[in-house]
Amino acid sequence: MRLIAQVLSLHYEEGRLQSQIAKELALSTAKVNRLIKQGRELGMIQITINSPLLKYFDLEREIAKRWNLKKCLVVSSVTGSPQATLNEVGKGAASLLMDSIRDGDTIAISGGKTLSTMIENLSTASKFDVRITPLTGGVQGQHYTDVNHLATELANKLSGEATLIHAPLHATTEEERDIIMSLKSVQAVMDQSRQADIAIVGIGAVAGADSTYYTAQPVSEVERQRLYRSGVRSEFLGHLIQKDGSASGNTYNSRLVSMPPRDLVNIPVSIAIASGPEKVEPIAAALNGGYFNSLVTDEHTANTLLHKEAD
């Protein structure tokens, strides 16, 4: 036991190689290896990792297990600065995207402020043979977060090519939407997006100041509150999503020029990005729908998400 303890101390505390220990104690390397193995079996080794990142790993595992995700990335929250927190989430999403890209990939994206932040934080000297394609129609009056602008910006960052969609996200009527969706140019974009290798999507709130798509439309705060009371909790690819993850049956969804959320599940890597207290319910609803397999968010949002769902 004394010899085992001595070998363990030299190996783990002083960082000696097994060959160095063998020479110092006049043992064979095989004997040293056996003593280390014996020490493990006797429970003489306890490894403690001291890192502030451990709390993020725990949150990632809990969320991935709860919603059956392939990947969850939790980044630090910056107290008192939602914009700085959003920037951290953008960096994390950019890193996850870079880990996923391969030459020849098609990357489908939605619009939104979070995706804009991700693209701003994307930095690479590499050139990729990729195509960027929209998942939805565009939103008037929101140039810097519009899907066509973001597709172009992402293509420029990666040295790829962008496909643009010349159609609005919101049609005036269901009939108008059907006409737009029947156009060959729009069908081609949607078909390209359905066959994408990677999808990157934001998650929006319906009620409140951050409900981007539905404050941009002629939808009053009273109407958005009515939608919330009816059970709508999230905007995903422009679609209004109920708390349980199902698509709402309201007329707004029937007027969308967008890929249906259920089609996203066929894309191998689907990354949703969102952060902030106002996004907790929207994220939970989208997760309940099982529309994507990867999530990027911040620590505070992740904690609130898990505690709210536990309640």
Score class of each variant (00 low, 15 high):
90 G>N: 09
90 G>E: 03
91 K>T: 05
91 K>N: 03
92 G>Y: 04
92 G>L: 02
93 A>H: 05
94 A>G: 08
94 A>M: 00
95 S>D: 10
95 S>K: 13
96 L>G: 00
96 L>N: 04
96 L>C: 07
97 L>P: 06
97 L>K: 03
97 L>C: 06
98 M>F: 11
98 M>R: 13
98 M>K: 14
99 D>T: 10
99 D>F: 02
100 S>D: 07
101 I>D: 00
101 I>A: 08
102 R>K: 14
102 R>Q: 15
103 D>G: 06
103 D>T: 12
103 D>C: 03
104 G>Y: 06
106 T>H: 04
106 T>R: 10
108 A>K: 06
110 S>C: 08
110 S>W: 01
110 S>H: 06
110 S>M: 01
111 G>F: 05
111 G>A: 08
112 G>M: 10
113 K>F: 08
113 K>P: 00
114 T>D: 00
114 T>C: 08
114 T>A: 08
114 T>K: 04
115 L>H: 11
116 S>K: 15
116 S>N: 15
117 T>R: 15
117 T>G: 11
117 T>D: 09
117 T>L: 12
118 M>N: 09
118 M>R: 04
118 M>H: 00
118 M>Y: 08
118 M>P: 04
120 E>Y: 11
120 E>R: 14
121 N>H: 04
121 N>D: 01
122 L>S: 01
122 L>P: 00
122 L>R: 02
122 L>M: 09
123 S>Y: 13
123 S>V: 15
124 T>N: 01
125 A>V: 14
125 A>G: 14
126 S>F: 14
128 F>C: 05
130 V>I: 14
131 R>P: 00
131 R>F: 04
132 I>S: 07
133 T>V: 15
133 T>P: 00
134 P>T: 10
135 L>T: 11
135 L>M: 12
136 T>V: 11
136 T>I: 07
137 G>W: 10
137 G>Q: 10
137 G>R: 12
138 G>S: 14
138 G>A: 12
